[in-house]
Lab assay of single mutants.
Amino acid sequence: LSEQDFVSVFGITRGQFAALPGWKQLQMKKEKGLF
């Protein structure tokens, strides 16, 4: 994903996403169907 695509999918930047705890990252990926 490009940075723009990432933001459009998750609503946050890669940096903000990386700062989230692992379980939260997994939850967001599952919600978006990316896992």
Rank of each mutant, 00 (worst) to 15 (best):
Q16H: 09
K30L: 09
G15Q: 14
P21L: 03
T13Y: 13
T13M: 05
S2I: 14
W23T: 08
M28P: 00
G15L: 08
G22W: 04
G33A: 09
V9E: 10
L20D: 11
Q27M: 07
Q16L: 05
G33D: 15
F10G: 07
A19V: 09
S2Y: 03
P21I: 02
Q25K: 06
E31M: 04
D5Q: 08
R14M: 12
Q4E: 13
I12Q: 00
Q27E: 14
T13C: 07
K30F: 05
A18S: 08
R14Y: 12
Q16V: 04
E31Y: 01
G22R: 11
F6Q: 05
K32G: 10
W23I: 07
F10K: 06
L20R: 02
D5L: 08
F6D: 01
E3H: 06
E31Q: 06
M28I: 02
S8P: 03
E31A: 09
L20I: 00
I12V: 11
Q27D: 07
K29V: 13
V9Q: 11
L1T: 14
Q27L: 07
M28T: 00
K30E: 15
E31K: 07
V7F: 12
D5A: 00
W23F: 08
L1V: 09
F35L: 15
K24T: 04
E3N: 15
E31T: 01
R14A: 10
V9K: 12
F10V: 06
S2R: 07
G11F: 15
F17K: 03
F6W: 09
S8C: 12
I12S: 01
W23L: 08
K29T: 12
G15W: 05
A19W: 01
F35M: 15
S8K: 15
Q16T: 09
G22I: 09
V7D: 11
A19S: 12
A18N: 15
A18M: 07
W23N: 06
Q27S: 09
L34W: 13
P21Y: 01
K30Y: 13
G11R: 03
S2W: 06
F17W: 04
A19M: 09
V7Q: 13
E3R: 03
E31W: 01
E3F: 12
F6H: 00
G11M: 00
G15I: 14
L20W: 00
V7M: 07
Q27P: 02
M28C: 01
G15C: 10
K32W: 05
G15S: 15
M28W: 01
I12K: 06
I12N: 03
W23P: 09
F10H: 00
R14Q: 12
M28Q: 00
P21E: 08
F10P: 01
F35P: 14
S2V: 06
F17Y: 00
L26I: 09
F35V: 15
K32T: 09
F10L: 05
K24N: 04
F17T: 03
F10D: 06
V9L: 10
D5R: 09
Q4M: 13
V9A: 08
W23V: 11
K24E: 10
K24L: 09
L34F: 15
Q4T: 08
V7H: 14
K29S: 13
G33C: 15
L26D: 13
G11D: 01
E3A: 07
F17I: 02
F17L: 03
D5P: 01
L20F: 00
E31P: 01
F6V: 00
G22A: 13
E3G: 05
K24M: 11
F6S: 03
L34H: 14
V7I: 12
K32H: 03
V9Y: 10
L34P: 13
I12A: 04
K30V: 11
Q25F: 05
Q27N: 02
A18L: 12
V7S: 14
Q16C: 04
Q16D: 05
G15R: 11
L20Y: 11
S8F: 03
A19I: 03
F6I: 09
M28K: 01
A19P: 01
V9P: 01
F6Y: 08
Q25L: 03
Q16E: 12
V9G: 07
E3V: 06
R14G: 06
K30A: 14
K32R: 14
V7P: 06
Q16F: 06
A18I: 11
E31R: 03
F6L: 04
L20M: 08
E3W: 05
K29R: 12
K29A: 09
R14I: 08
K24H: 02
S8L: 08
G11E: 01
F17H: 00
Q25A: 02
Q4R: 11
Q16G: 05
F17E: 06
S8Q: 10
I12R: 01
L34V: 10
V9T: 10
Q27F: 04
A18H: 05
F17Q: 05
